[in-house]
């Protein structure tokens, strides 16, 4: 009976992982497929990877994406972290209002956010990379806030006071006592902003204007002509990068816990 239970649960788990990862697996397999067809295996090749660097369309979109993603994530992290600190020290009622306001961009349909941002931006600035960056900052900030705020809340209020009591200036107390405690939240907020920005299509599409393409919008335009296999290769690389990043974060997290355990 027990054996059966165990077998059934492993099977169930295997099925879940299969559904989750089969599409990505197909993509990875296709990136090594020496055939333009999506259904026929034409042998193993690395030529799509080799072709990547010579495809101007892709390289330009990649460059734009990196630029937009990094800039918007960094600014969103700074804004979000300072906002979280501000919200944390507000009066209770104001905190509730601010958190409600922070929630709206998360709940709002991307298409509504996209159109409204476009309408707003066209009034002040031509659409282009800059407007996309502004839009990405706008929708990334809530993710940072929601990653940093719980960290602040778990930090004892008195810790900051204790530091100033021991002679630290407010700046030094923040840097030495508050920052180390909230840093993991800031980092995960930054990584989430990174993912959201990299991932976004709808809002980017409405705010990018003509001539600017990120990877997601370029993929969309390519759909009409049929997707080039180089894009499978690019997607595979991006997936592996994200996967590696995840591994590093998890490993670091558990390593830290391990140290604490050993000291006990």
């Amino acid at each position: 009976m027990n054996k059966f239970k165990k077998g059934a649960s492993s099977l169930y788990l295997a099925l879940i992982f299969l559904f989750l990862y089969a599409p990505i697996l197909v993509l990875i397999v296709l990136s090594f497929n020496d055939s333009m067809s999506r259904t026929v295996w034409g042998g193993f090749t690395l030529k799509w990877y080799a072709n990547l660097s010579s495809n101007d369309n892709i390289m330009e979109a990649l460059g734009t994406t990196i630029k937009i993603t990094l800039t918007s994530s960094i600014f969103a992290t700074i804004l979000g972290t300072t906002a979280a600190i501000g919200i944390h020290y507000m009066k209770k009622r104001h905190t509730a209002i601010m958190l409600g306001a922070t929630n709206i961009p998360l709940l709002n349909a991307d298409i509504v956010t996209g159109i409204s941002l476009m309408l707003l931006f066209t009034r002040f600035t031509p659409l282009g990379e800059f407007s996309v960056i502004l839009a990405h900052i706008a929708f990334s900030v809530p993710y940072v806030i929601f990653n940093v705020l719980p960290r602040l809340q778990s930090l004892s209020e008195a810790c900051f006071e204790a530091a100033t009591d021991l002679g630290a200036t407010p700046m030094y107390a923040f840097y030495k006592v508050v920052w180390p405690e909230i840093f993991p939240g800031v980092l995960s907020g930054f990584l989430m902003a990174l993912t959201m920005s990299l991932d976004d299509f709808t809002i980017t599409y409405f705010t990018k204007g003509a001539g600017v393409n990120t990877l997601s919008t370029m993929l969309y335009t390519q759909l009409r002509k049929g997707i080039q296999p180089e894009l499978y290769a690019l997607s595979t690389i991006l997936f592996l990068l994200a996967f590696a990043l995840l591994l590093v974060i998890n490993f670091k997290g558990s390593a830290r816990k391990e140290v604490v355990k050993n000291e006990k």
């Binding site: 006071e161 100033t164 009591d165």
Partner: peptide, 28 residues
């Protein structure tokens, strides 16, 4: 507070969780 020759023992201790005992005591 940081310029007063006064130190405080807080109700909930308020020790710095990411520091060792040595670093906590030596902070000031």
């Amino acid at each position: 507070a940081n310029l007063r020759p006064i130190n405080t023992v807080f109700q909930k201790y308020a020790l710095f969780p990411h520091m060792t005992i040595e670093e906590n005591i030596g902070f000031g």
